[in-house]
Amino acid sequence: MTGSTIIFYMLGALTLVSGVLAVTTRQIFRAAIFLLFSLIGIAGLFFWLQYDFIAAVQIVVYVGGITVLIIFSIFLTQQAGELLPKQKPVRQIFSALAAFCGFALTMLQLYQHSFKKTTDQALIPNVADIGNQMLSVGDNGFALPFEVVSILLLAAMIGCIVIALRSKPTVA
């Protein structure tokens, strides 16, 4: 058991345990904080896989952006100290059953399948390579999806402003 293995299992446990707590706790603010730890665990797994850039993006966008957005919307919409209503036990049991059956089926399929590995030389991704490939228009370039995502983000930004604008009371 090397140090790297121990770190992997700790990160995996952090991710899964805080994920479970995030979907089961009845205090919505705690759910947001557990979600934060789950996302940090995923970023840690990306660091463990030595994909530093995507781990940094994960921390900046998810941990720094989306979680803060969720926490602010909780502040705006929830009364302090109010618990989420209890769910019907039947619904919880059947949801757990459905999720567990799906999980078991997926894992069964996975362990019956043997993946073929490439024999090519492994590439350590550095930021310069990622940037060049992202904006290259040649083979293996991602310039078109990059531009499409930019348009999508612009559309989402305008859409958010339009949706969240307080509509003025109409004068009768």
Binding site: V23, L35, S38, I70, T77, L84, F103
Partner: peptide, 26 residues
């Protein structure tokens, strides 16, 4: 896979829109 189905479980059981959004993030 475990995280995916944790998210699915949350999406099935939660009835508050913000917590459902959290499940989607998972």
């Amino acid at each position: 896979a475990a995280l995916f189905f944790i998210g699915v479980f949350g999406f099935f059981t939660r009835r508050n829109l913000i917590t459902m959004l959290m499940s989607i993030e998972l």
